[in-house]
Amino acid sequence: DRIFMTRTEALEFLLKAHQTAVDKIGHPSHKQTPADHAAIEALDRLLLDVRARRVDQFQINASAAQIIVTD
């Protein structure tokens, strides 16, 4: 599946995904793992790359739809 978004929409989408990941590892019942921190770092890099126009398409994980940034 493909989803087309403007750059602004894609950045909002990534910010929400980032916040969800941060909230998940901050929850008291969740045991933090290196994979959790790696996922947040990957989202940080992706946010910067989309914002800087170095990336025009991405996929958060293998089961997610491919996001295509349109400007």
Rank of each mutant, 00 (worst) to 15 (best):
K16W: 11
I40Y: 04
P34W: 11
I68Q: 07
K31I: 15
T6C: 04
P34V: 09
D49L: 13
R7K: 04
F58Q: 00
T6H: 04
E41R: 08
N61P: 07
N61G: 14
P34L: 05
T8H: 11
S63C: 11
D36I: 08
P34D: 13
I68A: 04
I40Q: 03
I3M: 09
I25T: 06
Q32T: 15
D71N: 04
T6F: 02
V22F: 07
F4K: 05
I25H: 06
F13G: 01
L46Q: 01
Q57P: 00
R2T: 13
D49A: 04
T6L: 04
Q59W: 12
R7M: 11
A42I: 12
I40F: 04
Q19C: 03
H37G: 06
H30F: 06
R2D: 06
V69L: 08
F58R: 00
I68Y: 09
D49Q: 08
G26N: 15
D49E: 12
A17I: 08
E41M: 08
Q57D: 04
F58I: 03
K16E: 10
A21P: 01
L15C: 08
L43G: 00
H37L: 15
H37F: 15
H30T: 04
D49G: 08
L46N: 00
P28D: 15
S63Q: 14
T33R: 05
D71Q: 09
A52N: 14
D71K: 04
I68P: 00
Q57S: 13
K31A: 14
Q19E: 08
R2C: 06
H37A: 11
S63Y: 14
I25N: 05
F13C: 04
S29C: 05
S29G: 13
I60H: 04
K24C: 05
A17M: 11
I25L: 07
E41I: 12
L11S: 02
I68E: 04
D23K: 10
Q57H: 13
R7E: 02
T8K: 14
V22C: 06
L11D: 01
D1G: 09
E41F: 06
F58N: 00
Q59C: 05
L46G: 00
T6P: 04
H18N: 02
V22N: 03
A62S: 09
V50R: 00
D56C: 06
A35Q: 12
E12K: 12
D44K: 15
L46T: 02
V55G: 01
R51V: 10
D1L: 02
S29P: 02
K16G: 06
S63L: 13
R7P: 04
R54A: 05
R51S: 15
L47K: 02
T8M: 13
I67H: 02
R54I: 11
E12A: 12
M5A: 01
E12D: 13
P34A: 15
R51P: 02
T33C: 09
R45K: 14
T8A: 13
T70P: 02
I67V: 10
R45Q: 11
F13L: 11
A39F: 15
A62N: 13
H18W: 11
E12G: 10
R51H: 12
H37K: 15
T70E: 09
D44P: 01
I67M: 03
P28V: 08
T70F: 06
T70A: 09
T33A: 03
V55L: 05
K24F: 10
R54C: 05
V22D: 01
D44V: 14
I40S: 02
L46S: 00
V22G: 02
Q32W: 15
T20S: 14
E41Q: 12
A10F: 01
L47S: 03
A35W: 09
P28L: 05
F13N: 01
G26E: 08
S29A: 04
Q19N: 09
L14W: 01
D36K: 03
L15W: 13
A62R: 08
H27K: 11
H27S: 14
Q57L: 08
R53W: 11
A39I: 13
K24V: 07
H37Y: 13
T20H: 13
I3H: 05
A38S: 08
M5G: 00
A17V: 11
T8R: 08
D56K: 14
F4P: 03
L14T: 00
D56N: 14
V55R: 05
H27D: 15
D36A: 04
L11Q: 03
A62G: 15
E12Q: 13
Q32F: 13
D36N: 05
R2V: 15
T33M: 03
H27Y: 05
V22S: 06
E41L: 09
L11G: 01
M5P: 00
R51Y: 13
I3F: 05
S63R: 07
G26T: 14
D56Q: 11
V50F: 03
T8L: 12
A64G: 14
G26P: 03
R54W: 05
F4M: 09
Q66A: 10
V22P: 01
Q57V: 14
R45D: 04
A52D: 14
T70N: 08
L43V: 03
M5C: 02
V22Q: 05
D49K: 04
L48H: 15
T6W: 02
D71I: 14
I68T: 09
I67Y: 07
Q57F: 12
S63H: 13
I3K: 07
V50P: 00
I67W: 02
E9L: 05
R53M: 14
H18I: 14
F4Y: 14
T70S: 11
D71V: 10
I60Q: 02
A17K: 06
L15G: 09
E12C: 08
H18E: 01
D23M: 06
D36L: 15
L46P: 00
L47D: 01
L11E: 04
V69C: 03
R7Y: 13
A35G: 09
V50S: 00
L46E: 00
L47C: 03
F4A: 06
K16L: 12
R7C: 03
Q59I: 10
F13A: 04
F4T: 07
A42S: 10
T20C: 05
I60A: 04
M5E: 00
K31Q: 13
R53L: 12
S29L: 06
I68F: 12
H18T: 05
D56A: 09
L14S: 00
Q19T: 06
A39T: 11
D56I: 10
K24I: 11
M5I: 03
A10R: 00
K24H: 11
K31E: 15
Q66C: 08
V55H: 02
T8Q: 14
T6I: 03
T6E: 02
H37R: 13
T8F: 14
A42K: 14
D44C: 06
L43P: 00
L11K: 01
I25V: 10
R51K: 13
H37M: 15
L47M: 10
Q19V: 07
I3P: 01
Q66G: 02
L15D: 05
I3C: 05
H27Q: 12
V69F: 03
K31C: 05
D44R: 14
L14N: 00
P34S: 08
R45T: 07
H30C: 05
I60F: 06
V50M: 04
L15A: 11
P34C: 05
Q59H: 08
R7S: 04
T8D: 15
D23I: 07
D23G: 07
A65P: 07
H30E: 06
A65D: 07
R2Q: 13
A39N: 12
H18A: 04
Q19P: 01
Q19A: 12
L11C: 07
E41C: 07
I60E: 02
H37E: 12
N61S: 15
Q32E: 15
L43F: 04
F13Y: 09
Q19I: 15
Q57G: 06
A64Y: 10
H18Q: 03
P34Y: 08
L48V: 11
